[in-house]
Amino acid sequence: MTTWTSPAISSMRLERPRSLAHALDLLEADRGLTPMAGCTDLYVGIHFGSLKQRRFLDLQPLASLRKIQKRPDGTLVLGALVTYSQCLDSPLVARALPMLASAAKEIGGVQIRNRGTLGGNLGNASPAGDTLPVFLAADATVVLASARGVRRVPISQFFLGYRKTARRHNELITEIEVPPIAGKQWFRKVGTRAANAISKVVAAGVRGEGITFALGAVAPVAMRAYAAECALGSALPLSEAHRALRSEITPIDDLRSTAAYRARTACALLTQFWSETR
């Protein structure tokens, strides 16, 4: 027995806030309100009828969230509405977080990069989100605002499960703070094709005083590979790092790839990261 139906636009509502404060008030008042930014993911869900939500909060009017800044302490502050195209064009990003520029370059085509936002990528929390490993490897902090105040969540604690984040219903992702990074940054995406692709495996890493390595699409959430980092840091042979990595990832078979391929490619990426950041 099968039910066939898809939602009608006319049954949906869009709230258009005048200011950030107004947006936060609206969120406080309505648990079922879904923030909407570049719509590059959300509109696919609407079109194919797979989206459950009916009420949306339009973030486009919030121009203050579109800035890329650098604080005196060297922290790079990326507004939630910063687009991938902005990341590509920004000298600040190029200097402080080149692996984000690398990620942005491989997302979608120009059309998607002009619309898709960093906040959307984080909030959507797809395990294959391309900027997520970048922020994980950068030890970024997600800034969440609500009518009651501001909360800072380390990115390592932000992703709770498959498409689940630490954002509460009354909160908005307003900014991502990236501390100064010492060391070589590295990024690689392995997609279903050379452009307009969803990642089969995506990885970002930093090698300096410390080592960070993060992966997407090999677990229900984008994740730091702590055990592999540790193995690399203790100068164990690469095969040990691979063993560690395989123990901490939980890849699956899906429409785009297989668990076996994801696991072997995650290891191969770790090797490549290690040899290219020497």
């Binding site: 258009r16 590059t40 339009d58 120009v110 998607i112 619309r115």
Partner: peptide, 10 residues
């Protein structure tokens, strides 16, 4: 350039 299929008219 944007994809008009992913842009709410708003």
């Amino acid at each position: 350039p944007v994809n008009a299929c992913l842009v709410p008219v708003a």
